[in-house]
């Protein structure tokens, strides 16, 4: 058991190291550095440039910079943002909590809505309307749903709560419900055609209870899809966050990249890659738990 956990932790570490390495190399190879950002259209005198380069480790080869950053990651001192001077760890934790809250809330509302709609469509027979709505929901990128919501509020002269979780939550729920509705409905329909459901039906189980059986059957794959999106939102719903100036991980990433704030980029990458790797492990465990046969196989 302990060996298993240790193995998983080692795996997370591996993912974090690889991701930060790739991300940092890509960011460094792209034209422009923090000094370009600091000086904009102007340029510093050569000695000031040297001074700043030494300070930001830019005078070292990329692999040496990366090793220095890795060392920092493990000592717990993640450095400070080049531009605001805020410690990277507190900055990222604050943004992370915002994004996590958004991701969890979105997942919960989307799933609740999907289960309800699928129940209505498969058991109560409102299939057609919902299928059309699902198409409408997915045919617009999330950011456009956000704009539509904003437009409605502007017309109603209702204040738009910029910076709060409400608008991004509504936007992401509307934009995501279509795809998850379709996935869940297809899975439930598949379940209904499975022999074990037929058996239950023959026994005389009510449609509602049959639905719960089918839902149980559909869960593993649905959970995989939902967790995947949850991970993406934790990593940042860039367009939606920007639209409503919600301080989440996505906006942080974009800003850190456009200002070449390397300590923040590295911190972001370490935080997100470890989260996603853990999330995947969690998904696998959940999978085993929901589907006992996989557990037995192991």
């Amino acid at each position: 058991m302990w060996l298993h956990i240790l193995k998983k932790l080692f795996y997370v570490l591996l993912v974090v190291l690889t991701t930060t390495a790739v991300l940092y190399s890509v960011a460094r190879l792209f034209p422009g550095d923090p000094i370009t950002v600091l000086y904009g259209e102007t340029t510093p005198s050569p000695d000031i440039r040297k001074l700043l380069e030494a300070r930001l480790w830019l005078d070292k080869p990329i692999y040496a910079q990366l090793l220095l950053y890795w060392k920092r990651l493990f000592t717990g001192d993640w450095g400070v943002s080049i531009f605001s001077g805020e410690p990277v760890l507190t900055l990222i934790l604050r943004r992370y909590i915002n994004s996590l809250a958004l991701a969890l809330a979105t997942t919960i509302t989307t799933t609740a809505l999907c289960v309800l709609l699928v129940y209505l469509s498969t058991v109560k027979g409102y299939d057609k309307i919902f299928t059309q709505l699902a198409t409408v929901s997915t045919s617009m990128p999330a950011v456009l749903w956000g704009i539509v919501l904003m437009l409605v509020l502007a017309l109603l002269k209702m204040p738009i709560p910029f910076g709060s979780i409400v608008m991004p939550l509504a936007t992401l729920t509307i934009a995501g419900v279509g795809i998850f509705y379709t996935i869940l409905k297809n899975l439930i329909e598949k379940a209904f055609s499975e022999p074990f459901i037929e058996m239950y039906r023959a026994v005389g189980m009510s449609r509602a209870r049959l639905f719960i059986r089918a839902l149980h059957y559909a869960m593993p794959v649905y959970v995989t899809a939902v967790l995947y999106r949850l991970g993406l939102i934790v990593a940042g719903a860039i367009a939606t966050e920007t639209l409503f100036s919600y301080p989440g991980m996505g906006k942080l990433l974009v800003d850190a990249f456009s200002s070449r704030d390397y300590p923040v980029l590295l911190g972001w990458s370490a935080m997100i890659s470890s989260t996603l790797a853990l999330l995947n492990i969690f998904g696998d465990l959940l999978h085993m738990y929901i589907d006992p046969r996989i557990r037995e196989e192991k």
């Binding site: 795996y11 991701t19 890509v26 960011a27 991970g231 990593a235 990433l253 996603l276 790797a277 995947n280």
Partner: peptide, 22 residues
């Protein structure tokens, strides 16, 4: 395979784009 795709998944879309661009 899980390792490779976990890394790709953890890379933001536009970083993948930059990598490809390079």
């Amino acid at each position: 395979l899980s390792w490779i795709f976990d890394v790709v998944y953890a890379m933001p879309g536009f970083f993948i784009a930059i990598a490809i661009l390079l």
